[in-house]
Each structure stands twice: as structure tokens, then as C-alpha cells.
Design a protein around this nucleic acid. Structure first.
Lengths: 135, 135
DNA sequence: TATCGTATGATATAACATACCATAGTTCGG
DNA sequence: CCGAACTATGGTATGTTATATCATACGATA
């Protein structure tokens, strides 16, 4: 249990563990199904926990999948830009940061007095593993 | 009517015109409502037209809004990366291209043998117009 | 005119998300 | 101790977004 877990509520902790234990992103309803054994019964329980976790930066939402992943970093870059490469074959979502890209988008925004709150970068494609195979 | 419109079907043309005539992105159901006067009755009609238009690059999907906008360019960068700055106040979505960002993400992908198909970049925030005002 | 492909119409349902109200426990000032 | 305020939770109902499926119409062409 990491330090951040300490202040998580029971439900938040359960949702986070489920995401952290998954190889691939999970949807809210996918989480709900996995957590029924833990007593979860309805969507709001999942969505409430997810909202809190996303606010903390411990979980990221993948807009193009309507799904969620645990942040790859122990203590996440709170204001930093996060990008994902998502394989449409195996479903794996690889998180990465690129200072250069962040800088560049920042500059674009600054030049136009646009105040960014949250930035989404998602590359959908096929990972090396998958297109190396015959499939 | 631009040259590209020529080969559009009736429904595709109606959907495209509706998007092109809108200041802000529209959802599929928003489009459906606007097109009821044109005989549209059900979601699949809208979604089918949108799919064709997105495939052509004439329309872009905004993942973080579940909405759609007409491409800002006459003849769109087909394989090019498109980014959006979306104002959460006024709803305007500004399309832009950045070669450096495209390059950079391309490099990241190439280094990992990741084959990108489609990339989403969306900056949610507040535009200059809006935060300049008292609101 | 028979057949094929494409566009369209229409229904039903799946998948994703939130509004709202109720209940239980905790903290803290009076 | 009591009650107000706050937070977490449970639960129902509903709203919103998207697609599967089957049926129908229409143009091209051999």
C-alpha cells in the first residue's frame, strides 16, 4: 500500500486496486462487474470513486475508449501532460510524457491566451508486439 | 457546394452542412434533432453519415465531448495530425496543426514500433475571449 | 428483367453517465 | 450531551451516447 492509498476511502481503494491490477484499461461498467463481489451494486459507486481518483491524478481517463487506467507513476505529474499509445489489438495503453510536446502545446495556448485545464493525447494504433505477430 | 460534396450521399450532405453551419461542435443526437425537419428519424442515420464523413476527413470527432465538427480545411490533411483547443465556456473548438508535435509523436511511435492509426489531441480550457470577460 | 451493391429506414437494445434522494458515521461548537 | 455540518455511501431512476439487426428502396449493369 503506497502512501497515497492511506487517505483513500474504501470504495476508492477498491476501484484503484482493480485498475492497478488490470493489464488493460477498464470501463466503469467493467469495474462494476469486477467489484460486485466486493459489494458494489450500482454505477454511481464506481463513478464517484473514479472521479476522486482522477482528480488526484492516480487514475487517467482514456477519452477515446471511455475507459480508465491507473497512472503509471507512483507520484503522478499533477499538472503535467500525459499521453497514451493504445493498441487496438491487445488493448494495452502505454502512458508516456513528452516535455517537448507539452511545451509546444503550451506555447500554442499562450500565444492565443487560451488557458488549458486538461489535455488529452491518445494515439490509437497497433503496438510492436501485435503487428509483429501473424495476426 | 465544394467539390467534395459532389460524391456525398443525401444524408451525408445534410449532416455535413449542419456541422459546417454550426459555430460549435454538435453531438450525434444534436444533429438528429436539427435534421428531423429534413426527415431524419433515428440515430443510425446520423451515425452512418458521420462515419463516412469522418473516414473522409471532412469531419472530426471530439472524443472528450462525444461531439463532431466539420474540418476547418477545404481539403483536409488526410494522414496529418489534427489538434483542438476547446473552450469549456463558449464551446468553440479551434482546430490546429503542429508539425513539431506530429513529428515528435511519430518519433515516439517509431522508436517503439508502434503503428499509429489515429491520434487525438484535445486541449480543454478557456479561450481568450471568455476569460477576458467578467464571466 | 434479374442481380448486385449501396443507401436508407426503422426498431430495439447495449453501453456509458448522472441527477437525486436517503442513510450512516464523524467532527466540532455550543 | 445535542445538533449542525460535512463526508462517504447506498440505491433508484433516468438521461445520453452508440450500435446490432433486419427490412426496404434504388441505381447500375449484364
Amino acid at each position: 500500500m503506497t502512501k497515497q492509498d492511506q487517505s483513500l476511502t474504501k470504495n476508492q481503494s477498491l476501484v484503484f486496486k482493480a485498475l492497478a491490477g488490470s493489464e488493460v484499461p477498464l470501463t466503469a461498467y467493467g469495474l462494476l462487474d469486477r467489484l460486485r463481489t466486493e459489494g458494489f451494486k450500482a454505477p454511481p459507486q464506481v463513478y464517484r470513486a473514479l472521479e476522486a481518483l482522477v482528480d488526484r491524478g492516480m487514475v487517467h481517463r482514456l477519452e477515446s475508449l471511455n475507459a480508465f487506467v491507473a497512472c503509471a507513476h507512483e507520484s503522478c505529474h499533477p499538472s503535467g501532460l500525459v499521453a497514451f499509445a493504445i493498441c487496438d489489438d491487445c488493448g494495452q495503453a502505454t502512458e508516456f510524457n513528452d516535455e517537448f510536446v507539452a511545451q509546444r502545446l503550451q506555447s500554442w495556448s499562450a500565444e492565443r491566451s487560451f488557458k488549458p485545464h486538461r489535455t488529452t493525447i491518445e494515439i490509437r494504433g497497433e503496438c510492436g508486439e501485435c503487428h509483429g505477430l501473424t495476426c
